[in-house]
Nucleic acid binder design. Structure first.
Length: 477
RNA sequence: GGCGACGUAGCCAAGUGGCUAAGGCAGCGGUCUGCAAAAUCGCUAUCACCAGUUCGAUUCUGGUCGUCGCCUCCA
């Protein structure tokens, strides 16, 4: 079966092939650690994880690199000269480096809770300043960079393919940028982006600073991804993932820097995840759907969901209800739907585990549908439909030899079905005895005693299901 | 202002130029059941609106309305 993936570069689905057989070099744009990640951010890491797991499902080894952007970026107002992380540090009266480490830890904690496979290499921008400086030197040598009194810039007119990914003409950008005040009068083109900022003028008090051939300062906003991805994965990557917002600025810049420095193709498949948008979260507020943003007042963290009693994996399940390239509307109703759906999936796994059986030929059709779905540009809604159809057919036929298939699917789904089913059915002598006692009571039609035992087991977290062929049970947590 | 995306049942959504328009959740009505739960069966969509192309459009084209995103650090 061929794996087809949508490449933003060509705006179409393409059959995937890797540079090196059996191996996929994958880079995922990681978090900026100046604040908590919200569930919208997390959605795109779930997308990258599904991509990685799908590649692994089809037999690839996937060395994956993720950056951690711990160099402060500018605040929205370019003129302010303040730095997001410094602002945060000031606000909390803590050291900027502590802040970065703290949010990095929280981020990877969230990643773990969502059962996202950790990247093979996790790299911090602040630990790769030398590589970035080397990259900028190369760009000077090849005539792409120039220095002004304030900074070093990449001259976008020296790189004709600059607009290939964004498909946004430079003229339009220039027009659009015309009314903006250009802070640096020496900048050649409005679209030129900084490779290195000097710690002078508005950045005179910038806390994070390093020596460089262009004076003390700090790296530009996009160099780290180029420098680190090429350091760990080579000059040409198979796949580069990120959020759709990167299609217009960050990724074109990465391409320009990387290809400008090496003269080689930087990335073969660019893949971008769509945003989570927030629907009405409450009845009385007239907040229409919009993207979740750190300054939007609709900031939901994974911890927010956990505090409300949701399993983090129910959020993962929710993400599968929409295709990764389509926006997903978050509402509490859809969150509840996902939680219920995930619960019944786990219940089924526990049921199948208890009853068991040989796999029957009809299972093959569902395997096929599942695999076709993930191979078709990670169509998780279809894949999930295949899972649900498998379950329904198993229940209808009362043939439960489907665990092998289910666990195999879960290598991509990452919903911990095996762990959950095993945990739910851990044998215990006391439980066995109580259940046997209850079955005896039921045989004698001693309903009062049977209900007492049911309640007693319920207090122990055991859920009972009486069936014609005996009583099934599972642990509720 | 420029560029782009989307509008499918109560909610989240997949999909297709023509067979019964996936799946989940919620709801209603049956079956099963000592109770409970689960399971199962059935029901719930003129695919935003208008026009065009076509033998035939939800799917293609144009327009209207609505929503959203990007153009600035942001998944």
């Amino acid at each position: 079966m061929s794996l087809n993936l949508y490449n933003t570069l060509t705006r179409r689905k393409e059959e995937f092939t890797s540079i090196e057989p059996g191996k996929v070099r994958m880079y995922t744009c990681g978090p900026t650690v100046y604040n908590y990640a919200h569930i919208g951010n997390l959605r795109s890491y779930i997308f990258a994880d599904v991509l990685r797991r799908t590649l692994e499902y089809f037999g690839y080894e996937v060395p994956q690199v993720m950056n951690v952007t711990d160099v402060g970026h500018l605040t929205g107002d370019v003129d302010s000269g303040e730095d997001k992380m410094e602002l945060q540090a000031e606000k909390e009266g803590r050291d900027i480096w502590d802040i970065a480490r703290y949010f990095e830890d929280v981020f990877f904690d969230d990643i773990e809770k969502l059962n996202i496979e950790p990247p093979n290499v996790r790299c911090r921008a602040t630990e790769h300043i030398d590589e970035m400086i080397e990259l900028v030197k190369k760009l000077f040598a090849r005539g792409h960079a120039y220095e002004t009194a304030q900074a070093v810039y990449f001259d976008v007119t020296t790189f004709p393919k600059y607009t290939e990914l964004s498909r946004q003409s430079l003229e339009d950008k220039m027009t659009a940028a015309r009314d903006e005040v250009q802070e640096d009068p020496e900048k050649r083109n409005p679209a030129d982006f900084a490779l290195w900022f000097k710690a002078i003028g508005r950045f005179e008090h910038h806390i994070m600073r390093w020596e460089s051939p262009w004076g003390v300062g700090f790296p530009g906003w996009h160099v780290e991804c180029s420098a680190m991805s090429m350091k760990y994965l080579g000059e040409t990557l198979d796949i580069h993932t990120g959020g759709e917002d990167h299609v217009w600025v960050h990724h074109p810049n990465e391409i320009a820097q990387s290809e400008g420095a090496t003269g080689k193709k930087f990335v073969r498949y660019w893949m971008h995840g769509a945003f989570l948008v927030v629907g009405k979260l409450s009845v009385d507020e007239d907040d229409e759907e919009r993207r979740m943003g750190k300054s939007e007042g609709n900031f939901l963290r994974l911890q927010t969901l956990i505090d409300k009693g949701y399993d983090p994996l129910a959020y993962r399940y929710l993400c599968f209800s929409a295709h990764y390239r389509a926006k997903l509307k978050f509402t509490w109703e859809s969150m509840d739907a996902a939680a219920s759906g995930y619960e019944s999936l786990k219940d089924f796994a526990a049921r199948a585990k208890q009853i068991g059986g040989e796999e029957q030929p009809w299972v093959a059709e569902h395997r096929k549908k599942f695999e076709e779905a993930i191979a078709d540009d990670l169509n998780m809604p279809q894949a999930l439909a295949a899972v649900n159809e498998l379950i329904r057919e198993a229940d209808r036929r009362k043939e439960y030899g489907v665990l092998e298939a289910l666990y195999k699917f879960d290598e991509v789904l990452g919903l911990n079905l095996r762990e959950s089913a095993e945990k739910a059915t851990i044998a215990d002598a006391e439980i066995d005895n109580l259940i046997k006692e209850r079955e005896n009571a039921r045989a004698e039609k001693n309903w009062q005693r049977a209900d007492e035992l049911r309640n007693q087991l319920a207090e122990m977290g055991i859920v009972l299901e009486d069936t014609p062929s005996g009583t099934l049970w599972r642990r509720s947590n």
